[in-house]
């Protein structure tokens, strides 16, 4: 087993290479530590081992950075694909399609009982705002845990991607359309005011928003389970 000072040297090296996300940091740290434990010559220092064995095998510091960036890209694609599979599953897969039918029915009943616009407002908050708040909380909590356990990194690539997905709907439906509206019609745009003109869209849009919210929460539940242990 490697000693504390040797661990620190590996951590310093990884900080120098700028590995600041949990996923690749932990994998690379374990790789270097295992490689060092199995070094050919006992009196080789961590620094010497990295220079003689690790760096040439990874293609130098540049090689490590390339792997890190490629890894981040793959992760982004993986989570986006997962989100799309979950989302389309609510329309195509049994029994998830039952939930969609149930949501449509509940929205229909709710709009007949209460004011349909108010129902739509509540659905918007549930579907769009709640996942944002929860995933932002998850990121904050992760950062706090990193500090607590003295981790050299402060974010997780997966958590960040889930957060990005959870804000993307708001960004497109409110942010992007507001910008387009300013450019072309010189007027202000509000997502809710826009839909107020089309009450027949409340149920389809409300269902989409609720499913989107559920997908974000499912991703959140699956991906934010990050165990951090003291160094």
């Amino acid at each position: 087993m490697i000693q504390q000072n040797e661990k620190t040297q590996i951590q310093n090296y990884l900080n120098r290479v700028i590995i600041n996300e949990m996923e690749f940091y932990e994998e690379l740290y374990d790789h270097i530590a295992t490689s060092y434990e199995n070094r050919a010559t006992e009196n080789q220092s961590v620094k010497e081992h990295i220079a003689a064995v690790v760096e040439p095998d990874f293609g130098g510091i540049e090689g490590i950075r390339k792997i890190k960036n490629a890894h981040a890209r793959q992760r982004r694609r993986m989570i986006t694909r997962k989100a799309l599979t979950l989302f389309t599953g609510y329309f195509l897969r049994w029994p998830a399609v039952l939930i969609t039918c149930l949501l449509i029915l509940l929205l229909y009943i709710a709009q007949n009982i209460w004011d349909s616009y108010q129902v739509f407002e509540i659905v918007t908050i549930l579907g769009m705002v709640t996942p944002c708040i929860i995933s932002q909380y998850g990121r904050w909590k992760f950062k706090q845990n990193c500090k607590k356990y003295h981790k050299p990194y402060s974010f997780s690539q997966v958590n960040n991607q889930v957060y990005l997905l959870s804000i993307s709907f708001i960004a497109v439906l409110q942010g992007l359309l507001a910008i387009i509206s300013r450019i072309f019609s010189d007027g202000s745009y509000s997502f809710l005011s826009f839909f107020q003109q089309y009450p027949m869209l409340y149920i389809p849009m409300g269902t989409l928003l609720l499913i989107y919210g559920m997908v974000c929460l499912q991703l959140f539940k699956e991906n934010f389970k990050v165990k951090l242990l003291p160094v």
């Binding site: 790789h31 095998d57 990874f58 792997i67 490629a70 890894h71 793959q74 993986m78």
Partner: peptide, 15 residues
């Protein structure tokens, strides 16, 4: 097998 080739392959297969 160099690590520079192995890890991108593992990450791609995982994705």
């Amino acid at each position: 097998i160099t690590e520079g080739a192995l890890y991108p392959t593992l990450h791609k297969l995982e994705a």
